[in-house]
């Protein structure tokens, strides 16, 4: 009698475990709930004009016709308040507008802060030592790194311009701004964030870099005809510092 009871208990436990073991699979098959996400994007613009491809032409205040060839930016220490979102991210105009995408909702966000560039300690450390998925790893940073000294290129803006107002397309004036060195490191913060519903449970915070502001920020102007190149070498550093200040002002949410 006792034996029979034990065996029956075993049977019940066995079936229970078997069903339990199968439950996970059943649950996997259930439709997964889409987790809400927030996405931070970046767009190069000239005033209100989106520079969505390398063939879009904008006209500067001086009447120069210009195309954006490439814009890349390294942002570090991206934070929502005190909460670290990502140690580093690279925006690359050739690779799409998403800068960062994380789980959460806009209500979780109080503010957004980050550095434009890399602080002096990281800037001169071994670029091969970062983990593979870190934006500052030399494989990911690639052409955004010069060498251990001077370190990373914090942002680059490359334009090609037609500076002759003669009605003939002749985009032959390259403009190259490669801004880096510790002196051009800047930090910025956004509050009162304006989130947009992008559908699919994604809320977007859209940042833009307004090239109009990059070239003219109050009294701080850059004439692409004469100030057309910096690689942040010592003699070029004043232009790089001016561009770093203007870039910070040009970077806004919209």
């Amino acid at each position: 009698m006792r034996m029979k009871r034990v065996v029956n208990y075993l049977a019940i436990i066995g079936l229970g475990l078997t069903i339990g073991a199968c439950r996970d699979k059943d649950e996997e098959n259930e439709e997964e709930t889409v987790k809400p996400q927030v996405e931070i994007t970046m767009d190069p613009m000239y005033d209100q004009q989106f520079l969505s491809s390398e063939n879009v032409i904008f006209t500067t205040e001086e009447g120069y016709r210009v195309k954006l060839r490439e814009m890349k930016v390294i942002l570090t220490d991206l934070r929502n308040g005190n909460h670290l979102l990502s140690p580093a991210a690279i925006y690359d105009s050739k690779k799409g507008r998403t800068l960062l995408k994380v789980n959460g909702t806009s209500s979780d966000f109080g503010s957004l802060s980050f550095n434009i560039g890399v602080d002096s300690v990281l800037n001169h450390s071994d670029p091969a030592a970062f983990p593979n998925d870190h934006a500052l790893n030399i494989v990911n940073a690639s052409d955004m790194h010069w060498s251990w000294n001077p370190g990373y290129i914090f942002f680059k803006v490359e334009l090609i311009a037609d500076t002759l107002d003669d009605g003939i397309d002749n985009f032959n004036h390259p403009v190259t701004y490669h801004v880096g060195m510790d002196e051009t490191f800047r930090s910025t913060q956004f509050t009162g964030l304006n989130w947009n519903n992008a559908g699919n449970s994604v809320e977007q915070l859209r940042l833009k870099v307004d090239l109009k502001r990059l070239l003219q920020n109050g009294n701080s102007t850059v004439d692409i005809k004469t100030e057309f190149m910096t690689h942040s070498a010592p003699a070029q550093l004043p232009l790089s510092i001016k561009l770093a200040e203007n870039f910070k002002a040009a970077l806004t949410s919209y």
């Binding site: 065996v7 029956n8 075993l10």
Partner: peptide
């Protein structure tokens, strides 16, 4: 015969874990 459900349960359990 009465022990059969118990044995089946044990076998199912073992095969589920194999």
């Amino acid at each position: 015969m009465k022990l059969l459900p118990g044995f089946i349960g044990v076998i199912v359990l073992i095969s589920a874990c194999k």
